[in-house]
């Protein structure tokens, strides 16, 4: 039979043991590396207006920003922390739905609604040129991803109500 002193000793040993077990977990929790928000850049993005649909590659971030009641595509140079102009891409009557950028910031793939239909286009920044991408068999593009070298598209396409994924080589 254990007396009160023994109970206290057992309790102390139990607490010590629990502490010994918990301490590394606690320390690991405290010391676990945490992702660091890019505060300056995030502040600039916040100031640009409500934003969605990010695509990040290399030193480039493409996203859809709402401003003055209109959604538009922005391409941000992360080194300069500034958007770059995209001449020939924007149309005031187009509604962008999805955007993807390659790692050189040269190619942008865009799904957009225009004149009542949804289309997939590829924009080449160095040429300032927009090229439609034809889906075969025909379907409605919903979302697009671009390989980092800009040579392949992965497109979510709706065909007769079913979601499918097309892989399309880009010359």
């Amino acid at each position: 039979m254990r007396g009160p002193g023994g109970d206290r000793r057992a309790l102390a040993v139990g607490v010590l043991r629990a502490g010994t077990l918990a301490l590394p977990l606690l320390l690991a929790g405290c010391l676990a590396p945490m992702p660091r928000p890019l505060v300056g850049l995030n502040r600039r993005l916040e100031a640009a207006g409500p934003a969605a649909a990010p695509s990040l590659a290399g030193d480039w971030l493409a996203l859809i920003v709402s401003r003055d009641g209109r959604d538009r595509i922005e391409l941000v140079d992360l080194n300069r922390q500034q958007p770059v102009p995209l001449p020939g891409l924007e149309r005031p009557d187009a509604q962008p739905l999805s955007v993807a950028v390659d790692a050189r910031g040269e190619r942008l793939a865009v799904v957009r609604q225009l004149e009542g239909r949804t289309e997939l286009v590829l924009y080449r920044r160095n040429l300032m040129a927009l090229q439609p991408v034809v889906l075969q068999p025909p379907g409605v593009p919903r979302r697009v991803a671009l390989r980092a070298d800009g040579r392949e598209l992965a497109v979510e396409v709706s065909r007769e109500g079913q979601g499918q994924v097309d892989l399309i080589d880009v010359p």
């Binding site: 992702p35 660091r36 928000p37 890019l38 850049l41 995030n42 993005l45 916040e46 409500p50 934003a51 969605a52 649909a53 990010p54 695509s55 990040l56 590659a57 290399g58 971030l61 996203l63 992360l78 790692a103 980092a148």
Partner: peptide, 26 residues
């Protein structure tokens, strides 16, 4: 979200307070 190909950064679209925003993390 979008993870940079080199894995060094991630961009996350977040909703909250009636507003959508994109934030980047190292």
């Amino acid at each position: 979200l979008s993870l940079a190909p080199d894995g060094r950064r991630i961009a996350i679209a977040l909703e909250g307070g009636g507003r959508s925003r994109v934030q980047l993390f190292d």
